[in-house]
């Protein structure tokens, strides 16, 4: 029998109709209604320090701690790190830290810095757990702190914020290729929805090509932490940095392939945040060389 279903192709991207096609095919939303559901400005902070890593790419934990402190204070507008954390989480929360597990994983130093900072702010250590893994992991948590590493991915285009909860589905492979547009689903799973209190991207040593296995030629010392509470806005900024780095590296346009549909779809299909740069307020602190924005 002839397959009458319209197939998504490169032409949809060129026409700019991919979002509408996906919106209809994924969740049957009225595209024009879904669009604009997240109007408004989202704050994303970028804190960078040239000395966050040494020449051998060892992380300087003292510098990293200062970067984290600055991130929390600048992002929340509070006067202290403790007040900043307590504006995001409660001491009674069971907090799950969710780092990227494979292919350019989140630095252990970043996970440890966040954990120490929470403890120093009065969160009991027993209330903090590493929640990366299968579907059971987030169920006991009342708050999640997403700690993805900045990277491209060969089957989803970008493998940073929207992809961080993919293991919670129990079937990560179903979100590859075109289905990467459905990664927004992972943020509205019943045991995940509404729990994310902060997205903090480890952009110390990102990977700008998709792999599938790490190639050190495509890693570079960005020495940054990128933070926000709008996951789509944070991923949009991450995508911009990756795209600009790729073009700078090759001296010619070098689009991500496959295209990272997940970012736009997270906005326009799932209403998780904004993917429009004009709706994102970026505040940058520290080292500005090679900011790529």
């Amino acid at each position: 029998m002839k397959d009458e279903k319209k197939k998504l192709t490169r032409r949809d991207f060129i026409r700019g109709t991919v979002g509408a096609t996906l919106g209809a095919s994924l969740v049957g939303l009225n595209w024009s209604k879904a669009k604009g559901a997240t109007a408004g400005s989202s704050l994303v902070t970028i804190v960078r320090d040239k000395n966050a890593m040494d020449a051998a790419k060892n992380v300087n934990t003292d510098v990293l701690k200062n970067m984290l402190d600055q991130t929390l204070i600048k992002f929340t507008g509070k006067n202290s790190v403790k007040d900043a954390w307590l504006s995001l989480v409660k001491p009674s929360d069971k907090i799950g830290l969710v780092p990227t597990p494979h292919l350019n994983p989140t630095h252990d130093e970043v996970v440890n810095a966040v954990k120490s900072s929470l403890i120093d702010s009065g969160i009991p250590e027993e209330n903090i757990t590493n929640a990366q893994g299968g579907p059971e992991k987030p169920k006991t948590c009342t708050a999640l702190i997403a700690l993805p590493a900045l990277k491209a991915h060969w089957l989803t285009g970008l493998g940073t914020v929207m992809k961080i909860y993919v293991l919670y589905t129990g079937n990560a492979r179903q979100y590859h290729e075109q289905n990467n547009s459905k990664l927004g689903e992972t943020w509205i799973l019943p045991h995940v929805k509404g729990k994310t209190k902060l997205v903090l991207v480890d952009a110390l040593y990102p990977l700008c090509d998709k792999g599938p296995q790490p190639d050190p030629r495509y890693k570079w010392a960005y020495n940054g932490l990128i933070a926000g509470t709008d996951p789509v806005a944070v991923d949009t900024v991450c995508l911009k940095i990756i795209m600009n780095k790729r073009e700078a590296m090759r001296g010619e346009p070098w689009p991500l392939s496959p295209p990272p549909l997940c970012v736009e779809a997270a906005d326009k299909v799932y209403g998780l945040g904004t993917s429009q740069m004009e709706n994102i307020k970026i505040e940058h602190y520290g080292w500005d060389e090679g900011l790529l924005l």
Binding site: L8, T9, R10, L155, E177, Q178, N179, S257, P259
Partner: peptide, 13 residues
């Protein structure tokens, strides 16, 4: 086609 798409994106099918 997955490899083609990683070089030159044509279609997810």
């Amino acid at each position: 086609y997955l490899v083609l798409n990683s070089i030159y994106y044509l279609s997810p099918q």
